[in-house]
């Protein structure tokens, strides 16, 4: 208890001497946490969206003519020979027309003068793979296109490819912002602690003569780094939460946001970010102690 009160007293004393550099460091750590967690938040949401889209992904093979019932099993086997699928559905011209009517809703009257059999026969294939295996889906699509009677294969190829590339780009940005978080936290905290130690050189020397233990001298310095990490992570994540709320309130709408059900970082991720920030800032503190504080 006495040790804790001593540490708090020492921290208050250090803050009075070097509050400007401590505030700057806190700001930098918070900003780094915010940048990293912001991209991480987008990345996790995109991953979720990707997984959702993956589950809903279907490849439609348009056929020249309907596959007779006797050959359907063989046709299915040809498909499953290439890859595992969740479901295969044969769509007749009538069913396709009925679907289109349903999709058009109130505007379905545009179809009134059209022949209900103007749409082609098709087969819907729901693969068990998701978007992570984009190359595999492309191969699958090529394979389906080579099946006898297949005219065209459709699965929103261009859109899915772009989405895949965007996720890859996000992954790189998350890694880069993670590196930024590491560099700024470790170096800024290390630098601030160094300034603190330099401003206390005279005092530290006297403390050594008085027999101050390693724990007595190093304790407050370690705690300072730890607290910078804690408050840095807290303010960074709090800012992210407000930013998230703002985005949700201002960008949610029938087109854009309904595609992605935006959600905040799960508790486990928040805890991990806290832990990483604490570890990085404590490491920065430790580096300075090892380098500049010979007890």
């Amino acid at each position: 208890m006495r040790y804790i009160s001593f540490i708090l007293g020492q921290l208050a004393r250090n803050s009075r001497h070097g509050w400007a550099s401590q505030v700057m460091t806190l700001f930098t750590v918070s900003l780094s946490v915010l940048i990293f967690s912001f991209f991480f938040l987008i990345y996790t949401n995109m991953q979720k969206a990707s997984s959702r889209l993956g589950n809903e992904l279907r490849l439609i093979v348009y056929l020249e003519q309907e596959v007779p019932a006797a050959f359907r099993q063989e046709f299915k086997k040809k498909i499953t020979d290439f890859d595992r699928v969740e479901k295969i559905a044969f769509i007749s011209k009538e069913e396709a027309f009925a679907r289109l009517t349903r999709q058009l809703g109130q505007e379905s009257d545009v179809l009134e003068d059209l022949d209900p059999s103007f749409l082609p026969y098709s087969v819907e294939i729901f693969p068990s793979n998701n978007l992570k295996s984009l190359a595999r889906i492309k191969d699958f699509s090529d394979y389906l296109g080579s099946l006898p009677g297949a005219v065209k294969v459709q699965y929103g190829q261009e859109w899915i490819e772009r989405f895949g590339y965007f996720i890859s780009l996000l992954r790189i940005i998350v890694l880069l912002s993670g590196a930024l978080l590491i560099l700024t936290s470790v170096f800024m905290v290390s630098y601030t602690i160094r300034l603190t130690l330099e401003s206390r050189q005279e005092e530290l020397e006297i403390l050594r003569f008085l027999g101050a233990t390693d724990r007595y001298i190093r304790g407050p310095v370690m705690v300072e780094g730890f607290l910078l990490g804690l408050f840095g992570a807290f303010s960074g994540l709090l800012s992210l939460f407000f930013l998230f709320q703002w985005i949700k309130n201002h960008f949610s709408g029938p087109v854009f946001m309904n595609l992605f059900e935006l959600s905040f970082l799960p508790l486990a991720n928040i805890g991990t970010i806290f832990l990483i920030s604490l570890l990085l800032c404590s490491s920065g503190s430790l580096i300075s102690i090892r380098k500049y504080l010979k007890v």
Binding site: E202, F209, G211, V295
Partner: peptide
Amino acid sequence: LQKMRQHIGVAYQDFRLLSKQTVYQNIALA
């Protein structure tokens, strides 16, 4: 060594006081 130092009180010729701290703080430090 640190423990041994705690058991020796030294009044230095050059005092070795913390100039910005008060009399109380300097003595209490020991």
